[in-house]
Design a protein around this nucleic acid. Structure first.
Lengths: 254, 254
DNA sequence: GGGCGTCATTTTACATGCAATCTCGCCCTG
DNA sequence: CAGGGCGAGATTGCATGTAAAATGACGCCC
C-alpha cells in the first residue's frame, strides 16, 4: 500500500470546507505536513477527492491563521516558524494565557477541574511511558485549549487559538524530548493548583511564568539572546508562588 | 442621484478579493453597513460589479475576523457587538494594548513619535471643531493601529487587529459625543508621553488603564455591573503614574 | 378569521471552465 | 561544458453552472 497522501480521510460531519480545513490543520499541527510543504489546491483536491473550491477556502483559512503563507501566483505553503517568530509569539501568548488562566480560575467548577486534571494525568502517563514528542505536544495543546474553553471568553479564545497553534508547530522542530516536557507538565500542574485553590491572580501569574519560561528556555537553547539575561535570571530565581505580578516585565524606568 | 449601494467603488490595486474585502471592511467599520445587515454574496457581487467568487472570499475573511457572523445555509450578516461582547473584548484588549505600548516604547524613534503626535494633534482639532463621532472613532482607530505598527510584532498586530476592529464597531452605537472622546484623547496623550519619556513599563500601564477605563465607563453607562464595583473605584483613584503593574488585577491571594 | 401546507425565489455550497501567469527543465549557443 | 532563453505543464485568480436548502408569500382549508 502506497502512501501518496499523509492526509487523513475526511471525517463525516460538517461542510466539506470545514472538514477539509480541519484535516489540513491537524496535519500541519501534527507535523504530517511540515513547514515548507507546498499546499497546491488542485493537488490537495485530488488527494482528498473534493473539488478545488472547498480546498481553496480551507487553505485561505489556514493562511489567515498564520499556519500557511501565501505569495501571489505562487500558492501557499506551510509556514516556517523561526526562532524570532516564536519569541514574539511567546510575548503575546504570555499575556493571553495569563488572562485565560485568571478567567478560568474565576469560572472553575468541578467538571472543569476534573477535565484539566484528567489531561494532566494522561500527560503524566505519557511522560512515564517514555517520551513520545508528538503525544506530548498534543497533550500540551489539549491542556491549553481546555483552559481557554473554561475561561469562557470567545474573543480571547479566537485570539489565542492561532497563536497557540503556531507556537506548537514550532515545537516539533525544537523539542528533542529533553527536560522540557516534564517542566511543562509541572508548570501546568502549578496553574491548575492555583485555580483549584481559588486564586485567580496566582493562576494568572503561574500561566504567565509558564510561557515566560518557555521563552527563556528557547533563548538558552539558541545563541542569540541580547536582552534575555534578566529573564533567565528571573527564571532561575522564581519560586512557585506569585512573585512579581509583572511576569516578564519591561526595563526599569529611565 | 440614488444610493442603491453604500459601498465605495473598488479602489484600484491589489486583487479583486483584497479590494472587495477592504471595501466591505471599511464600510462595516464606518457603520455604512450597520450590524445586522445581510451580506448576500450575489447581491454584493452585483453592486460591486465583480463575480461572486471574490465577494465570497472577502465575506469569509470578514467572518473569520469576527466582523460578520455566519449561519449554515443562511449566509452572513454584519456582527452585532453587544455590551457583553464589548466587555469581554476589552479584557483581551487591555492585555494586548498594554503589550503593544510597551514594545512600541522600546522601539520608539523620532519618526514614530512624530507620527503618533501628529495623530493626537489631528484628534485635538477634530474635538475642538465640535464632536464628529465618526471622525473621532476613525482617529482612535488610527492611533491604536499606529501604535501596534510601531510595536513591530506582527503576531501581536494580527491578534489585536480584529479585536480592536470589533471594539470600534461597537462605539458607533454606544458613543453619543459626550465626554468619552476627550477622555480618550487625554489617555492617548498619557501613553505617548510615557513612551516619549522612555518608560516602557509606564507606557504599558497607561495603555492598560486606557482600555480598563473604557470598560469601566461602559459598565457605568449600563445598569449591569456585577463585580465592576472595585474596577470603578480603581478608575476614580488611579493617578497618572504607573500605580500597580497589575492594571485590572484579580483579587488578593486567598 | 386564523393556522397551515405549498410553491416560487433566493441563496448557499460545491463543481468546473478558462485565461494569465509562473515554474522548471530542456535545449541551444558560445 | 557553462549559461541563458524557451516552451510545456501546472497553478492561481476569477467567472459561472447547478443541486439542495431555506425563506417568505400566498392561498387553502378548517
Amino acid at each position: 500500500m502506497s502512501h501518496p497522501t499523509p492526509l487523513a480521510r475526511l471525517e463525516p460531519g460538517e461542510s466539506l470546507t470545514e472538514r477539509t480545513y480541519e484535516a489540513l490543520r491537524d496535519a500541519i499541527l501534527h507535523n504530517a505536513l511540515p513547514p515548507g510543504t507546498a499546499l497546491s489546491v488542485p493537488s490537495l483536491a485530488r488527494q482528498l477527492n473534493v473539488s478545488r473550491t472547498p480546498v481553496r477556502e480551507a487553505v485561505q483559512r489556514l493562511i489567515h491563521e498564520g499556519l500557511a503563507r501565501h505569495e501571489t501566483h505562487r500558492g501557499a505553503q506551510v509556514s516556517a516558524v523561526d526562532i524570532e517568530d516564536l519569541r514574539q509569539l511567546y510575548l503575546v501568548r504570555e499575556m493571553l494565557e495569563g488572562l485565560a488562566a485568571r478567567l478560568a480560575a474565576e469560572r472553575l467548577d468541578a467538571d472543569a477541574l476534573a477535565g484539566l486534571r484528567g489531561i494532566l494525568d494522561e500527560h503524566e502517563e505519557v511522560l512515564a511511558a517514555g517520551g513520545d514528542d508528538a503525544a506530548h505536544i498534543d497533550l500540551d495543546m489539549r491542556f491549553h485549549r481546555r483552559l481557554r474553553d473554561i475561561a469562557g471568553n470567545p474573543h480571547l479564545a479566537a485570539a489565542l487559538e492561532p497563536i497557540a497553534g503556531r507556537s506548537h508547530m514550532a515545537l516539533h522542530s525544537l523539542w528533542r524530548a529533553e527536560e522540557a516536557p516534564r517542566l511543562a507538565l509541572e508548570e501546568h500542574r502549578r496553574i491548575v493548583d492555583a485555580m483549584a485553590g481559588g486564586d485567580p491572580a496566582l493562576a494568572e501569574e503561574a500561566a504567565r511564568q509558564h510561557i515566560s519560561r518557555l521563552r527563556v528556555r528557547l533563548s538558552r537553547s539558541t545563541p542569540r539572546g541580547p536582552q534575555d539575561r534578566d529573564a533567565e535570571a528571573a527564571d532561575r530565581v522564581a519560586g512557585s508562588e506569585g512573585a512579581r505580578p509583572e511576569g516578564t516585565g519591561g526595563g526599569a524606568p529611565a
